[in-house]
Amino acid sequence: MSDTALGKDRRFPFGLTIATLIAFAILIGLGAWQIKRLAWKQDLLARIEVLKTAPAQPLATALANAQGRDLTWTRVSVDCAPAQPATLPLVYGIRDGDIVWRATALCRATVGGYGAVLLDLGVVKALTGQSAPAPVALAAPARAVGVLMAPRQLGGDREATVQKFAAERPAPYILMVETATPVPPGVTPAPLPAEISNRHLEYALTWFGLAVTLLFIYAAMLWRKMRS
């Protein structure tokens, strides 16, 4: 090998170094994001644990005293005006590995400056596993107790469903019903997720581990290149 070729072969690999640094920064960023998610998930699980024994407060009181606070996972109760059964959107979901459809009802009640609140009554048992369910007509119960969830956190078309009832001035939360009086026929309350995984620490360690591995591979390649 000529001296010129040898000199070119021993040049510092700037391109490889830049690519490695970019990949390293991305991996570290992903790990740091998972650490933030871990803190969020631990706070969420702690709130759910407290929720299990928290007394229900009137929905009107909770909304009036919110003062900008997020009321997600707050347990409340609400009394609904008498209403006739109506067909409202069914919401698709997965629970215990099966396709389920959740029933919605509109509870008309003057609460915190709003005129109504949407109730998630729970899973319609007869529709479990169906890909194209038949419409279901249900009336809002006279009284419901459950936990508040923001539509955006529930996903799917929840926010669009709330917008359909804009004329009713609905509250900006959906009440995930735990108990209803009277009990809606054929509906099983399911206010909380069947299982909430918390593997963010595992994911963070994986990303950090990949970042360290990348550095070792880069160092080995650089050492071999400079020696050859």
Rank of each mutant, 00 (worst) to 15 (best):
168 E>F: 07
171 A>R: 03
132 A>V: 13
170 P>M: 05
146 G>E: 00
125 K>M: 12
153 Q>P: 00
126 A>V: 14
118 L>R: 11
137 A>Y: 02
158 R>T: 00
97 G>W: 07
171 A>G: 07
102 R>P: 10
92 Y>K: 06
126 A>P: 12
157 D>M: 09
117 V>S: 02
117 V>I: 15
110 T>M: 04
96 D>F: 02
164 K>R: 15
93 G>W: 07
95 R>E: 15
154 L>W: 04
124 V>W: 01
171 A>F: 09
149 M>H: 12
160 A>Q: 14
162 V>W: 12
91 V>G: 00
127 L>E: 07
113 G>A: 11
170 P>V: 10
139 A>S: 14
158 R>E: 07
169 R>V: 06
90 L>H: 08
97 G>T: 13
110 T>H: 04
136 V>G: 05
152 R>M: 07
143 R>F: 01
132 A>S: 13
141 P>A: 07
92 Y>R: 10
116 A>E: 03
144 A>R: 04
161 T>F: 08
169 R>G: 00
153 Q>I: 04
111 V>C: 00
108 R>L: 13
162 V>T: 12
171 A>N: 05
115 G>D: 09
167 A>R: 13
120 D>W: 01
138 L>A: 14
138 L>K: 11
165 F>R: 06
126 A>M: 10
151 P>A: 11
167 A>V: 12
152 R>T: 12
158 R>A: 01
120 D>R: 05
90 L>S: 08
154 L>H: 04
93 G>K: 02
170 P>I: 10
107 C>F: 02
160 A>G: 03
114 Y>V: 08
147 V>T: 12
164 K>E: 10
97 G>S: 14
150 A>C: 00
100 V>D: 03
165 F>V: 06
106 L>Q: 12
172 P>S: 08
120 D>S: 10
115 G>R: 08
168 E>C: 00
103 A>K: 05
91 V>A: 10
169 R>D: 10
139 A>K: 08
113 G>S: 11
130 Q>R: 14
121 L>A: 05
142 A>L: 15
132 A>G: 00
140 A>M: 12
152 R>W: 09
163 Q>F: 04
173 Y>D: 04
113 G>Q: 08
164 K>M: 12
123 V>E: 11
138 L>G: 10
156 G>I: 05
141 P>R: 04
132 A>R: 13
91 V>P: 01
115 G>N: 07
108 R>G: 04
111 V>A: 09
163 Q>Y: 02
121 L>Y: 03
164 K>F: 01
110 T>D: 13
91 V>M: 15
139 A>F: 08
159 E>L: 14
139 A>N: 11
125 K>A: 15
95 R>D: 15
169 R>W: 00
114 Y>R: 11
105 A>Y: 05
109 A>C: 08
90 L>E: 08
161 T>L: 08
130 Q>E: 14
102 R>G: 04
159 E>H: 06
128 T>W: 02
156 G>Y: 02
107 C>Y: 02
93 G>T: 02
112 G>R: 07
131 S>H: 05
98 D>A: 15
102 R>I: 14
123 V>P: 05
162 V>D: 03
128 T>E: 15
108 R>F: 01
116 A>T: 06
141 P>V: 11
142 A>D: 15
156 G>V: 03
